[in-house]
């Protein structure tokens, strides 16, 4: 033979789906919520999303060059992180803060730990918490829907604030469709659930974590004597349950592990909301469970084929 043959280990076929395909599916799933946010909060929404996405991609690209590692911008994970971070910011945020958050998410949380798959907490959530601690007032300055122009809008309390202060709540249908104050991507439950459904149908995620998260949060709120629907439809619970808690790198491998993870997220969220002086607990709940993920993985190892089965000529 005049030409050398490729010798590689089996299998010699690979599936269609690559990391980039999965990330593109997540981006597609986020688009309904992006449209809903633009509808309610105006033209600043796409600007903030663009700033976050571009800062994430550029910082990932520069980071890989500085670290002398192969470039990974092509896997689209930085785009997903940018979009998720933007969804967690109020629409009035200063653009440089959004950019700073993106750099923290990519450089500190993701690349310093080894890049995609090696971060131990969700980069977007970690960056959001850093921004919340650093720029408290700007991060909780929410505006009412349809009032935000390019410059500013009418400041409003989020339903969670109203709930905590015992004031009148907007109707459930408004909460479901997203016509209330809040971070720009978290308000429209309908769009987020649609995205989640897409991810489940495309088998990007299994429904275990979102269902366990929302289910346990609803159950705990009933036990606490709260209205579970208000608890589910306010704050970032659905955004967190569908898109943040299901992040592969920081959630358990097995379905059993995912169930424990989701229940942990739901319970911690409700405990923070009800007992602490923070109005919102989704981010902290997810981060805490992220840190526990390696232990959950060790606890929920699978039982391999044919293990501990009694032997004997069994008829069937």
């Amino acid at each position: 033979m005049d030409k050398k043959l490729i010798v590689s280990p089996s299998p010699h076929f690979v599936g269609e789906e690559s990391t980039a395909d999965i990330m593109q599916d997540v981006i597609i799933a986020l688009i309904p919520a992006l449209f809903a946010a633009t509808f309610y909060f105006g033209v600043r929404v796409p600007i903030i999303v663009a700033v976050c996405v571009i800062s994430c991609v550029v910082s990932e690209w520069l980071c890989r060059i500085v670290m002398k590692r192969p470039n990974t911008v092509g896997d689209f994970s930085a785009v997903v992180t940018g979009m998720l971070l933007a969804f967690n910011l109020p629409v009035t945020i200063k653009l440089w803060m959004a950019a700073l958050g993106s750099v923290i998410a990519i450089v500190v949380v993701k690349q310093m730990f080894g890049g995609i798959g090696h971060n131990f907490v969700n980069p977007a959530i970690a960056a959001r918490i850093v921004l919340l601690v650093s720029f408290g007032p700007q991060m909780v300055r929410f505006t009412a829907p349809f009032t935000t122009g390019l410059v500013d809008g009418v400041t409003t309390a989020t339903p969670l604030n109203l709930l905590q202060q015992g004031e009148n709540m907007p109707p459930i249908i408004d909460l479901f469709l997203g016509e209330h104050g809040g971070s720009l991507g978290e308000t429209c439950a309908a769009a987020l659930l649609l995205g989640g459904l897409y991810l489940v149908v495309r088998r990007v995620i299994t429904p275990t974590i979102p269902l366990a998260f929302m289910g346990s949060a609803a159950l705990v709120s009933v036990l606490m004597g709260l209205n579970p629907l208000y608890q589910l439809l306010t704050g970032g619970l659905i955004l967190g349950a569908v898109f943040m808690a299901t992040d592969y790198a920081t959630s358990p491998l097995t379905e059993k592990g995912k169930l424990i993870f989701g229940i942990g997220c739901g319970v911690i969220t409700m405990v923070i909301r009800h007992y602490s002086n923070f109005p919102e607990g989704v981010s902290y709940a997810i981060i805490l469970m992220n840190i526990l993920t390696p232990h959950i993985n060790n606890m929920t190892r699978t039982k391999s084929f044919g293990k501990k089965i009694k032997c004997g000529a069994k008829k069937y």
Partner: peptide, 17 residues
């Protein structure tokens, strides 16, 4: 590329390792 911890290998393993 890097493992993204998606768990597909675990889900598809016929001998459940």
């Amino acid at each position: 590329s890097n493992c993204i911890n998606c768990g597909r290998c675990v889900r598809h393993c016929p001998v459940r390792i």
